[in-house]
Design a protein around this nucleic acid. Structure first.
Length: 438
RNA sequence: GUGGGAAUAGCUCAACUGGCAGAGCACCGGACUGUGGCUCCGACGGUUGCGGGUUCGAUUCCCGUUUCCCACCCCA
């Protein structure tokens, strides 16, 4: 039995990787225009970070994390094989593969006192890990493109301008990637006080009717009443329609904040729809919550999600640092791209084909010169028959083939053939770069 | 964690009621010693996901298991 990639993980191969690079380069380019800068945090963190940051009650923390006990630093067996070390692991630290990016970024923000620099605009691209059942658009190792605006209150980090800025940036990114037919849904889940009041009202409203609802809703009514709004069972919809809505429980500052976000978005021409049933799965969200969906993704139709988390820093023992951010599911983003992998792939400008004994050296020298001119150059082998070189050049998608044989070397002028048109000319060494680039 | 479908050559798929495991494409070589895409010929390619059972005989039927796909759940 050969060893295979483990369940829920996968290899990304060429030419698909060209698509991923296209997405990441475009994202970096767009983020730069909004003055975001990159942050890289560790792929594993103390388990406690996610327990406190994401929330003990969330599905992510309660059943989806890859968590293990590290070896104890003091263990006399610390350099023993892990089977033996496991015997003394009682004192080891509990570690977890990151299931999302925000907690780690806020941890770094606190740890390095980034609040002293004013407003931080940070982005992170990398793998996340959740132990869920794999499905279309859902993997156990998946990639997120994440960005956050966070800072002390005086830096304006809590301003609705920031919410609108982040959302508008996402619309720009999706447009730049050529993604058509995305849909933006917006909601405000209020502050902690609003949520407490709303939860209580919801619980009361559910009590007399929950018996008539589906089994899932009966469970949710106890564990997490907000999630009742996610229910898709038709028979439950009339009941859900009559339940209280978070929008009626927002206090005055939260309402004004949300109004201003909508106001800005409308003024700058970003289409959105309000959805007061939109709830997010992580405990730390406050006020603005949003989601971009796309039709071509099957059941996992959320291409990205985000929101505001004004109390997260404090929950992690840090200073007050309101923030807003989002996470794009890169796997899903790539799935909804209209581009083909072929179309974004960088093809060789020229295929250098040495022909006959001793020509490898000549060809290698020429290839080096051309590559130093920033041309994309592929290189053959003097043992190839010319036919084989042509086939290799064609397969590589090269624009030109450059033949390096004895005749050419003697004349210091090389046969350059355009593989698409069939036109062939003899080009002196000094003019090669210019001719190939033309 | 639950439910449905699937797994045969690198890829896409055949193989009747249980009877020698095949094709197309791709790959490699040749026809063709310095000019590609076309054509023709040849070669390579398999523990039929894995393990067990029934049978004279299993890709085929049965059980288990793993993985993938789809959906639930949840989320990006």
């Amino acid at each position: 039995m050969t060893i295979k990639a483990v369940r829920g993980t996968r290899d990304l191969l060429p030419p698909d990787t060209a698509l991923w690079n296209f997405v990441e380069e475009t994202a970096r380019d767009v983020f730069r225009a909004y003055n975001f800068q990159e942050i890289r945090t560790p792929i594993f963190e103390s388990t406690e970070l996610f327990a406190r940051g994401v929330g003990e009650e969330t599905d992510i923390v309660s059943k989806e994390m890859y968590t293990w006990e590290d070896r104890s630093r003091k263990s006399p067996l610390s350099d023993a094989p892990y089977e033996a070390a496991a015997e003394v692991l009682g004192k080891g630290q509990s570690l977890t593969l990151r299931p999302e990016a925000t907690a780690g970024i806020v941890r770094a923000y606190i740890e390095h006192n980034l609040g002293q620099r004013g407003l931080s605009k940070l982005y992170l691209i990398g793998p996340m890990f959740r132990r869920e059942r794999p499905q279309k658009g859902r993997y156990r190792q998946f990639y997120q493109i994440d960005a956050e605006i966070i800072g002390p209150p005086g830096s304006g980090s809590d301003s609705p301008v920031r919410d609108a800025e982040v959302i508008e940036m996402l619309a720009t990114l999706l447009d730049r990637l050529g993604i058509k037919g995305w849909n933006l849904q917006l909601n405000s889940v209020g502050c902690a006080n609003d949520r407490a009041k709303f939860n209580e009202a919801l619980r009361q409203a559910l009590e007399p009717v929950v018996g008539q609802m589906c089994a899932d809703c009966q469970r949710r009514a106890v564990t997490n009443p907000l999630r009742v709004f996610d229910c898709k069972v038709p028979a439950d919809q009339p009941i859900i329609e009559k339940l209280p809505r978070i929008s009626h429980f927002l206090d005055e500052p939260c309402r004004e904040h949300f109004d201003e976000v909508q106001n800005i978005l409308a003024k700058i021409g970003i289409q959105f729809s309000l959805n007061d049933r939109l709830v997010r799965g992580l405990d730390y969200y406050t006020r603005t919550a949003f989601e971009f969906t796309h039709g071509a993704l099957g059941a996992q139709n959320a291409i990205l999600g985000g929101g505001r988390y004004d109390g997260l820093s404090e929950a992690l023992g840090g200073p007050s640092a309101p923030g807003i951010g989002f996470a794009i599911g890169e796997d899903r983003l790539v799935m909804s791209l209209p581009e083909s992998a072929e179309s974004v792939q960088k093809k060789p400008d020229v295929y250098v084909a040495p022909l006959g004994a001793g020509m490898n050296c000549e060809a290698a020298g020429l290839a080096r010169e051309l590559r130093r001119q920033n041309l994309v150059v592929d290189l053959g082998d003097e043992n190839f028959r010319l036919k084989k070189s042509f086939e290799a050049a064609t397969r590589a998608g090269a624009k030109y083939i450059l033949i390096v044989g004895e005749n050419e070397v003697k004349a210091d002028s090389f046969a350059l053939k355009n593989l698409a048109t069939g036109e062939q000319i003899s080009v002196p060494r000094g003019e090669l770069t210019q001719k190939i680039r033309a």
